[in-house]
Amino acid sequence: MEKAIKKWWPLFVLPTMAAFAIGFLVPFVWGLYLSFCNFTTINDAVFTGLENYVMAFTDPSSVFTHALWYTALFSALSTVIINLLSLTVAILLVRGIRGTNIFRTVFFMPNLIGGIVLGWLWQVLINGVLEKYGVTIVTNEWYGFWSLILVMTWQQLGYMMIIYISGLQSIPEELSEAASIDGANAWQTLRHVKLPMLMPSITICTFLTITNGFKLFDQNLALVGQNSPNSQLMALDIYNTFYGRTGWAGAGQAKAVVFCIIVVAIALIQQKLTHSREVQQ
């Protein structure tokens, strides 16, 4: 059978792979190469070695180094907050209280709304509150920071909650019962029985929240805009370097490569760390 299928690869694999090459592979390899070049369009690239990388890190306005720690802090904090809250909500919503379905529906809803739309929606609300204190969302970096945390928590809580709920529901009833017969209280059951069984869900949710945090762009753009470099995450900073500063395209591509390496490394480390804590069922 394998042989029979094998010769049909032009039909089964080629269309996807051709599109994959156009949409991902070629741009990726080319982008990697361009990060070592000086260029303004794609036809005038001259190899310059590591110059772009030096330029990105020694930029006198230090937007990139700022964006680096700003993004790392944002991603770490939003991961912790979103996961703690969504796990708590999930635990409370599997008890079968009245209105559970409505609550789940409501909490999940913001996930379907696009980042640009969400950003503008919240900009009005947040600026409306801040105005009473005579400041706006771009007054300093921390207003933007906490606004982003608030918006992302509001949006992603429901998504992670759904994953945690399905994780909790797949834990066999007997395990909790056995624990309570052995004299474990609710907290001990949660800590020593449910949480270890939930590790696969925790792996997925932390993976999603960390990478979403690092890659965040739309909400950042709509919420604080392009003119406040202090509140920019890496994705937005890279975009501005490309399209907002003449002569900086090479540095932009170098930043993108650094960004890419960081995201891939974090994804790998995170998978290793949480996978190793998963228990076999």
């Binding site: 994959f20 070629v26 990726f28 369009t41 890659k215 395209a249 960004f259 891939v264």
Partner: peptide
């Protein structure tokens, strides 16, 4: 395919738009 899921869009956006 696995690799492409992790790579951020900014890595390819410039070259992709040209292509």
């Amino acid at each position: 395919c696995l690799f492409s899921m992790v790579v951020p869009f900014q890595m390819v956006m410039f070259t992709l738009s040209k292509i």
